[in-house]
Design a protein around this nucleic acid. Structure first.
Lengths: 211, 211
DNA sequence: GTCTATAATTTGATAGAC
DNA sequence: GTCTATCAAATTATAGAC
């Protein structure tokens, strides 16, 4: 299918070089079709970019277990919620390791730094959903936390995973590794999970102090 | 000075749109000079880009207290080291808030995701230095940690600060704020500092368990 | 050193054959 | 639906006046 080929290449190319960094000719050539196909199927360069954003949101596909995790949050069991949080983070970290993720990670990062209409379409998908579930889970795990405090905590957790992608080049340098091996990522995941445990404990202690 | 004006605008423009997203004409026009000045002073577009990278490294300027913090690491006082870590993180978070930071944050992020020769020049500066000092401080604060473990921890700490810039659009959405006010950032800084405390305590406990 | 003028390419869009 | 041909605009680089 020409349309799908165009989309896949668009995500890769737009992610790597941004909207203005790639020519429609290059994308079309890489997809083995004529440039005018883009005009025909997507109305033009901009249309292809927005379509690529929606495809990214779809490909991210949320953490597959998202539905399950929402159930855990609803149940209100602190221990289960804590496990679910760790699971989300682990899954996210793993997903960021997948080579395919490079394409849309770059795409998303670009939109984060300089949002266009495309960001709305991405956030509307699993990305936004997962964030909200994470906040719920933190509330449950810490026993009825103030909503805004839970959000701030969620961000601090998310950052620990994000950094492996967003500051990848720096991580490689600091760890003195040419490539970030699966073993190394496992070690890091263990660190993050331990951190989460420590942070949640601290939040519970903070809450008890305030009473 | 035409050269300095060109550099400032280059950082801003290249950061926002990437190497291929800006024309030398635009940069020259914004700097109130002719496009050919770029060829004359920097040999071409690429030369200007590399020069901009070096200027970014210079402007980041490291955390001003870097020298002091190295002393703390050398002294080997765990409590002082812990305070120094918190101070670095606070300073970094504050720096990321400064509007001027937008220009080079975008520039760096772009290089992280897709490193070119420019990244080497940036990392060689205060960025790499600060990372190494942070690792040292963690070793001291936790009492002679295994080096690689300290590096992983340093990354997890750094991520908590980075996220406010790298996933800024998402943070705004999740926190339901149009703009991230100074108060909100202060709240977040408090969260991060508390997290650091909890994480370092946990690392010390882990170490004692292993013995 | 800074400018103008111009050359050589490249780009996004469109018209029209099939 | 997919292609070729072509356009008008924009881009980098360079030559040369001052």
């Amino acid at each position: 299918m020409v349309q799908q080929r165009l989309l896949d290449i668009a995500i890769e190319q737009f992610g790597q070089h941004g909207l203005e960094g790639v020519s429609t000719r290059e994308i079309a050539a890489a997809a083995n079709t004529a440039m005018s196909s883009i005009t025909y199927h997507y109305g033009g360069k901009e249309g292809l970019y927005l379509a690529a954003a929606e495809e990214v949101a779809k490909q991210m596909g949320g953490l597959d277990q998202l539905a399950d995790l929402e159930c855990v949050a609803a149940e209100g069991d602190p221990v289960a919620a804590r496990g679910a949080i760790a699971e989300i983070m682990r899954a996210f970290l793993k997903r960021l390791q997948h080579p395919q993720s490079n394409a849309w990670a770059l795409f998303i990062m670009r939109e984060q730094l300089n949002p266009t209409a495309a960001f709305e379409r991405i956030y509307a998908g699993p990305m936004g959903q997962t964030g909200k579930v994470l906040v719920e889970l933190i509330c449950v795990a810490t026993g009825g936390q103030d909503r805004q405090a839970a959000r701030l905590a969620a961000i601090s957790l998310f950052g620990q995973v994000l950094v492996m992608k967003a500051a990848r080049a720096m991580c490689r340098k600091l760890l003195e590794r040419e490539r970030l091996s699966a073993d190394l990522i496992d070690d890091y995941a263990a660190r993050v999970v331990a951190n989460i445990d420590a942070i949640l404990d601290r939040m519970i202690a903070e809450r008890q102090e305030r009473q």
